[in-house]
Design a protein around this nucleic acid. Structure first.
Length: 450
RNA sequence: UCCUCGGUAGCUCAGUCGGUAGAGCGAGUGGCUGUUAACCACCAGGUCGGGGGUUCGAGUCCCUCCCGGGGAGCCA
């Protein structure tokens, strides 16, 4: 496999004439007793007289490498002293089992070369404040916990796509520039388009997914969403990512089951593949292991009763706040679906319950352990006249929704879908305090840098 | 938009009643053969967020602006 070999043209000074296999830290356990080369950065160094320790990172993990001075020429020992935090190096070492290492393995340094030095790296392996870390997000991403979070996030996205592919969903990307709100209530980011026209950054791909579902049956999109609400909490971003499936001939119960299957699939995959990262994040995995069928399903009115019983004052028609959702989540040992909300607190496109005109066939999935709404979805209004009435009631510009109404004009069918917020989900799985940490470069009310 | 907390060394913070600016970590130098945020010794490092005011004297009190954290509402 040529791609796995060092290219001597790039680092000709490394090991004269000998081509060593280039491996990553997460593969080292397969190379016990062998000499390998790694490309990466210095995480930290320590020394104790005649022995020096190098914590080496390459993006897949961190391994400790040892340099016992008497075994090496003086020049190499001296070069070791030049290593600062985040100096980039090519490292050649022999893989050895060692019980003292958290990984179970260590490297004996054979040789290394400095690619580029790192002077006064600002992030030390000590405590830092959120402000400072956010300002240095481009560097903060290199640290241990952030690396674990990003690996988990990457897997969540990958396996969500795999889940839908396995079920023969078509990936249909929704536009980012949209003519108006998907859900009239929330504020939008306005963008200057051509000829003095205004467009808005998408809040959701849902309406377009409905068109796609009536075209292809089972579809999903994965993309960014933008909300110009001036939210300033550790659960909010102005730019976040969602995965939004939409299925024709699906009712609210089918929809909740799909959401349930997806969540279980994702949690299982992360538990299988990211045990080490969950450990680094000190995530208690017991609550995650408990996530299996069936999730609880309660109606909005049940939820109100639960909250009232707990002494929280809330009545029919009130929406749940973050503390209410947390209170509900603590009542259950796995995620809970709350369904059939009053129509007036839900979006215009939600179908009304035929037995209860005042209820909408929408649901939220409230994640466990105090984390709130992670999924929101439901059955869509598929009757032309009812939908038109709802658009007018919400004072939405009918002309912008002409195409959306068309979907009810030409072979309308019952259909449902939901949106899963990637960051909310990863925040819950990794039990991270701030949502800003589970997206590579967070966009928040007061911060657009770096 | 509202409520609330904060801004002092590269970082995390202390600074009493208004009286000459402090610590730990990090950087640098030296020491140590198994360190895990190593340890020990030495050493450098300051426009106290900006502006204005009160005062003999302001990091400290007052006004104002800027920047950031947490929360509410809204939501994923």
């Amino acid at each position: 496999m040529p791609s796995n070999r060092i290219r001597l043209t790039v680092y000709p000074h490394i090991i004269k004439g000998i081509i060593l296999e280039k491996v990553s830290v997460d593969e080292l356990k397969n190379y016990l007793g062998k000499e390998v080369q790694l490309h990466g950065w210095v995480y930290n160094t320590r020394s104790s007289g005649k022995i020096s320790f190098l914590l080496f990172r390459d993006g897949t993990g961190i391994v400790q490498a040892i340099l016992y001075h008497p075994d090496h020429r003086e020049e190499l020992v001296k070069r070791f002293e030049e290593l600062n935090q985040e100096t980039s190096i090519v490292l050649v070492g022999k893989v050895r089992e060692d019980k003292r290492s958290p990984l179970g393995i260590e490297l004996d340094i054979v040789d290394f070369n400095i690619i580029s030095k790192s002077i006064d790296y600002p992030i030390s392996p000590k405590e830092h404040g959120v402000d400072f870390l956010q300002s240095n997000r481009h560097l903060w991403l290199r640290s241990k916990k952030q690396s674990s979070i990003m690996r988990i996030r990457s897997d969540v996205v990958f396996f969500a796509r795999e889940f839908f592919n396995n079920r023969k969903f078509l990936c249909i990307d929704a536009p980012i520039f949209t003519p108006s709100a998907c859900e009239g209530t929330t504020t939008l980011f306005e963008v200057d388009y051509f000829n003095d026209k205004k467009v808005y950054l998408s809040q959701s791909g849902q309406l377009y997914m409905e068109a796609a579902a009536l075209a292809y049956g089972k579809v999903y999109c994965f993309g960014p969403a933008f909300r110009a609400e001036k939210s300033k909490t550790r659960r909010h971003l102005t730019e976040f990512w969602q995965i939004e499936p939409e299925v024709a001939f699906f009712d609210i119960d089918d929809d909740m089951e799909l959401a349930e299957d997806l969540v279980i699939y994702l949690v299982q995959k992360i538990l299988e593949r990211r045990t080490d990262d969950l450990k680094i994040l000190e995530r208690d995995i017991k609550p995650l292991e408990n996530i299996k069928k069936p999730f609880y399903r309660i109606t909005y009115e049940d939820a109100i009763k639960i909250l009232n019983k707990k002494g929280i004052e809330i009545k029919f028609g009130d929406d749940f706040g973050a503390p209410d959702e947390a209170a509900i989540s603590f009542e259950f040992d796995r995620p809970v679906f709350v369904h059939r909300y009053p129509t007036q607190i839900k979006a215009f496109y939600m179908k009304k319950d035929k037995d209860r005109e005042d209820l909408a066939l929408g649901f939220d999935m409230i994640a466990g352990e105090g984390y709130g709404e992670t999924i929101g979805g439901g059955q869509r209004e598929d009757d032309y006249d009812t939908l038109l009435k709802r658009i007018n009631e919400n004072n939405l510009p009918v002309e912008n929704f002409k195409w959306y109404l068309d979907l009810r004009k030409y072979g309308s069918v019952p259909h449902s879908g939901f949106g899963l917020g990637i960051e909310r989900f990863v925040q819950w799985i990794t039990k991270t305090q701030h949502i800003r940490e589970v997206i590579p470069f967070a966009r928040t009310l007061d911060r657009t840098e770096p």
